[in-house]
Design a protein around this nucleic acid. Sequence first.
DNA 1: ATTGGCACTCAGAGTGTTGGAGTGCTAAAC
DNA 2: GTTTAGCACTCCAACACTCTGAGTGCCAAT
Lengths: 339, 339
Amino acid sequence: MIPDRSLEVLRAIVQDYIASKEPVGSKSLVERHSFGVSAATIRNDMALLEEEDLIHAPHTSAGRVPTDKGYRLFVDRLNEVKPLNAAERLAIENFMVGSADLDETLGRTVRLLSQLTNQVAMVQYPTLGKASVRHVELIPAAETRVLMVLITDNGRIQQHVVDLGSAVDEVFVSELRAKLNSALIGAALTEVNSKIKSVTAGMKPEHLKIANQIIKNLLEQVDANRQEKIILAGTANLAKREEDFPGSISPVLEAIEEQVVLLKLISEMQAEQHGVSLRIGRENSFEGLANASVVVSGYENQGSEMAKLGVIGPTRMDYSSNISAVRAVARYLSKTLGN
Amino acid sequence: MIPDRSLEVLRAIVQDYIASKEPVGSKSLVERHSFGVSAATIRNDMALLEEEDLIHAPHTSAGRVPTDKGYRLFVDRLNEVKPLNAAERLAIENFMVGSADLDETLGRTVRLLSQLTNQVAMVQYPTLGKASVRHVELIPAAETRVLMVLITDNGRIQQHVVDLGSAVDEVFVSELRAKLNSALIGAALTEVNSKIKSVTAGMKPEHLKIANQIIKNLLEQVDANRQEKIILAGTANLAKREEDFPGSISPVLEAIEEQVVLLKLISEMQAEQHGVSLRIGRENSFEGLANASVVVSGYENQGSEMAKLGVIGPTRMDYSSNISAVRAVARYLSKTLGN
DNA sequence: ATTGGCACTCAGAGTGTTGGAGTGCTAAAC
DNA sequence: GTTTAGCACTCCAACACTCTGAGTGCCAAT
């Protein structure tokens, strides 16, 4: 077990390093913090911490820098999340008023979060969950193609083009559209699968084939609730902190540009304490994020549908304020969407 | 007037500088290119070019670098656009096959363009233009709000939330929805304004107010054809060329993150020769793009609706290949969307 | 367990030195 | 009037060198 004072030393190192960007040494440590002991003692503690791979010296005769493991211990056990100050709370409230639809609300949220934290912010679109069907629209779009639109009662719209492989029979499509609507309107998305069977009953074989194609697609669409999407803001903040990314920021940019990577990343993260989940440095499975940390929190849409939002920044970030900002914004967003 | 040989010297300087990233001097110039004259003569020419503010020496006894004005003259009068090579043409064809709907096609296009040029690529969504109404949907979304969806026959979907300010009368909304559809389906967007008048005829005053609110919104939506949108890809390419941006890339990132800035930028650019339009360095009105150049070309959706696509990179970019890539991709996209 | 003392290390900042690439100018050659 | 060779001059970049300060690890004494 690591003695208490050594942990205090670790906390001090993390705090000083975040503030100064410089490796921190034993002497400056005793100057800035009042441990009642001498620098030599601190050095012994530091040796212990280094033993445990919690801190690391860039080179002999340099100060120490926290390792990923050190940051992890810091956020898990040493860090007190500091509440937002009045100005920040005000910023959140002001930013959110007057949002109309989902797109706009989420757009505002992501920009707010990036301004609040000075990091790259991301917001995932909520999954459909308990929503129900409001309308299904079929639109012949080209020779052999039909555009299918699924509208749900929580304001989400999904569209997809189905290629039938043969010429579109407009009359039949219109008929099918009517049948689908009468069968499905009001049905919860989870019920669609069972309710849709009645639609094809008593249908001519040549029509059945087309209907099944479209239905298959519709089900995919319903299932593709998981067709998730993430919006970003504040990419420029990465460039401002460039010195915090050894090498280049370009792998980080690549990572966040790939929706797939972000979605995978986010989905792997489960809420820990404070409802906030962290990935520090190499804890991220993606190589390009080796020098980055991710702070994520879940939020609720209409009381039930979960999605996540968060920020991405250098490992050497101010965890306290980022955690509280992410948490606060998530709560506000849940509240806003609750109505 | 500037003599021909001096222009040749300018061309050589631009080419060498783009290739080497180093300021180019008179001696290396005569070595690499066979002007039949000596370095001293070239120096005289260079003095002339400097007089004209076409090139510039970072410091005494350094080679020369083209100015924005020099690049401009280069692309306008000296540059031969080189055709794409076979591999690049193949890449374009392969990339585009199997695209289904508009979103996906444009998404692929923007990624293709960024890969082809190694720059940041952007594609603007086409304006609606000649499209006509396929369907109007009204969905009570909350206590006082109605979600309005406008679907057009070219596969575009627009949605907007209308806040009525009073409780939603579901029966009336459904009625209004039917009326709107019977009045508008099949109407060209340009006709909507006139055709919509019949809808409110003979309506009770208390309903009229609501109907007008919704109609006003619908018209805004139609008008907001200009509600334009730009998608981006390859942001990471900026970071890779970082040394080409004196200072930092962060102002560039900020600029391209702002849709408004990009839209303004794009709208100011009118096709010049080859159907391609350029902005070099400070020709961009936006300060953050002082060290960036923008290459843009128009493309057509369904033969009539215009929008633009292009790339953004450092002023010190390979104009030849970027121009031809942008032009080729614009043509391909027009062709793909033509069907 | 803690401490003061000490020898040791090393990155970084500062200073000189040098070499090469480049320039502008001039007077002669074409 | 161009063009050219020659020359003196400039300045950056690279290298080598030194010096200093912050930091370390270890040990003997408390």
